[in-house]
Design a protein around this nucleic acid. Sequence first.
DNA 1: GATGAATGAGCTTTCATTCAT
DNA 2: GATGAATGAAAGCTCATTCAT
Lengths: 217, 217, 217, 217
Amino acid sequence: MSEHSWIQELLQIGGKDGKFSEKQLKILEAAVEMFAEKGYAATSTSEIAKKAGVAEGTIFRHYKTKKDLLLAIVTPTLFQSVAPFLAKEFVREVFDNEYETYEQFLRAVLANRYAFVKTYLPAIRVLWQELAFHSEIKQCFQRVFVEHVYPKFARIVRHFQEKGELAELPVDSVIRLTITSLAGFLAARFLLLPDHNWDDEAEMERTIRVLMNGLRR
Amino acid sequence: MSEHSWIQELLQIGGKDGKFSEKQLKILEAAVEMFAEKGYAATSTSEIAKKAGVAEGTIFRHYKTKKDLLLAIVTPTLFQSVAPFLAKEFVREVFDNEYETYEQFLRAVLANRYAFVKTYLPAIRVLWQELAFHSEIKQCFQRVFVEHVYPKFARIVRHFQEKGELAELPVDSVIRLTITSLAGFLAARFLLLPDHNWDDEAEMERTIRVLMNGLRR
Amino acid sequence: MSEHSWIQELLQIGGKDGKFSEKQLKILEAAVEMFAEKGYAATSTSEIAKKAGVAEGTIFRHYKTKKDLLLAIVTPTLFQSVAPFLAKEFVREVFDNEYETYEQFLRAVLANRYAFVKTYLPAIRVLWQELAFHSEIKQCFQRVFVEHVYPKFARIVRHFQEKGELAELPVDSVIRLTITSLAGFLAARFLLLPDHNWDDEAEMERTIRVLMNGLRR
Amino acid sequence: MSEHSWIQELLQIGGKDGKFSEKQLKILEAAVEMFAEKGYAATSTSEIAKKAGVAEGTIFRHYKTKKDLLLAIVTPTLFQSVAPFLAKEFVREVFDNEYETYEQFLRAVLANRYAFVKTYLPAIRVLWQELAFHSEIKQCFQRVFVEHVYPKFARIVRHFQEKGELAELPVDSVIRLTITSLAGFLAARFLLLPDHNWDDEAEMERTIRVLMNGLRR
DNA sequence: GATGAATGAGCTTTCATTCAT
DNA sequence: GATGAATGAAAGCTCATTCAT
């Protein structure tokens, strides 16, 4: 019946299946699209209601304020954005030699995040834009990064430095350079020049190769 | 008398000295700060007027609409952002062996753009945020890039590929990787983690080094 | 419950009964009165709202712009102003000897329009004033006149010229003189000197008599 | 030097020659035209200033308020509108047999007022429109009518009733019917259907003829 | 649970008017 | 006398939110 499966998937980080009614999904879908296109502040709830095909009041039955609606979109997106690092089995996979090299690890991460961004682009746009203006979101982002992403990432980097693959640069710098490289590709690919004629496979390959040449001992 | 020299400098891409009155500069300064902090759409003209210490009507005497005020800030910022590539002597400097290596060239560009971003951060924030929502700005940006930045950048890259310094990667990819690396550093440094304890000299050095290791033959 | 029957009647040229809510009628009534008193341009929507006892936003829920509110009043008034000539049975009545003479016909028309103006005076004032400034209204008026009023009026005049009652003046002049005489009386009576001590019956009788003496063979 | 002679003539009801400066005339001319086209309330002083080619402040140097500017146009126009009846020699001319019949008298008045309206149409439009909204103008108009126009007109009507030319209708009705007929022609000719293909001579002749047929004993 | 009319605060913009130059 | 930058009140209109149905 529902056509909104992508929204539903994005929002269901846990197993809360069936939580969203048909109308609710329409509202969320309409909101993501309009927020991505015009920005949160420049989108009116009446526009969202019209696009979603519901009455204005219906929005406020589900979300007490317009901002709640934004957070309902942005918070799950934020968590999904760093999902691999939240997964319990993730670090174990690295250390259990599922990835023998940092390069293999990068390749896996990039492929995974590429697919994620491609699927959920509008929601990511919204997150990215509004991050700058809403301190709750920014703080949430920083907390997640500091508590979950950074420690695991650092262990992985140190692991491959000890294995001799990576040069003895400061761990923070390696992380920063890595994220910048991968995110830089995704930003260029999907945000800045989405209409450019990209050879995705090749460009990802080059991105990894150049980065690894730079980072290797 | 005036304290707004930084705005004045930013906006005077040509030699239009003395063009801005005291009140106009106060308006522009207040607008940049508020737009950077809360976003264009979420900032009201009455807030700007109050912060600038002028009557609301005064804003509209100088800028017919709120959007005109935005463009008065964003357009010069956009041009200044790519200013080195607009300068006539720029390419000549490269080919006249002012820069013997791509690495030297990168170092000069990064130092220059680092200073620029540091000085004009709020205006750059505004440009960066609103680029996504206003097609006129986006188109202007793309035109400037395609007509001025890209061709010169490509010549430089080819020059150093022919000299044997750079690997024979596609020119577009070299440009993309270069911009991503430098802009990625600046974004991390000034936008994402401005409060982190950065050792700017060292991190810029590492950024250049890793990138060059990646790009070298 | 409702006290606004006159507005409701005026606006319901067709059989759209029950179309207007209580608040909508209050808005229309307040608007007609204020437009008549101060003119459209000099009346603010906040004044209308206050007089109507509704919030200002409520006006704009029903009428997208202030001008739409004007047109909602003026357009029906315009049609009602020439209503007799729009009625399908009207011409037949004349030719079926319901009126044996032009004089009888004039008497009927004048009595009818006298009652109309007396009842809907404020709305007619508004129509009359704004006709001069809004080309849409003027064009609508001209179209209705040329397509509906003039042809029927001309047939009637020719009919009584052929019967020998009216002199062989140009039809256009007869129509012009007739309308000028009747409308002139109504304008003097209700617009220019409403406070004068009028003997309406006698003055209407004189108006008809003098006009007919002038037009008769 | 000046091109504004018509305005100057209209405004100089007395012999105040040379009273208006070049700029003042430009302001008045621009104001009349815009008030006639859009109405007093819908015309801004800045529009007038732009059209007149002067600074906004200059208007307020000559006329303390926008309303003063309106009155500076409307008051002279009002007096000129009934000018014949204000002229001292006017009644004497009638009784000294300069006009042997009411019909001759009407013909003279109509020709004179026709020329006046044709020359000063925009100012008359303004007077006519604003009369309805400004009680000072209305009162001024009524005072002039009651004190100057009506008594003289009444004497003339009685004169020709005594001479046996006019029927023994109430004097007020004769005056009303006369004014209505002449003003009705001028209104139709210049305000309602200025673009119609008028044969002015013939229509004026018919107007007089029909009216006289109606009023004659 | 869903609706949409109603609200009133707040938005961008315009305006008549002032005043230092 | 003329200017036009500056004003701030008020204009038309939009908006997030409420609530009776």
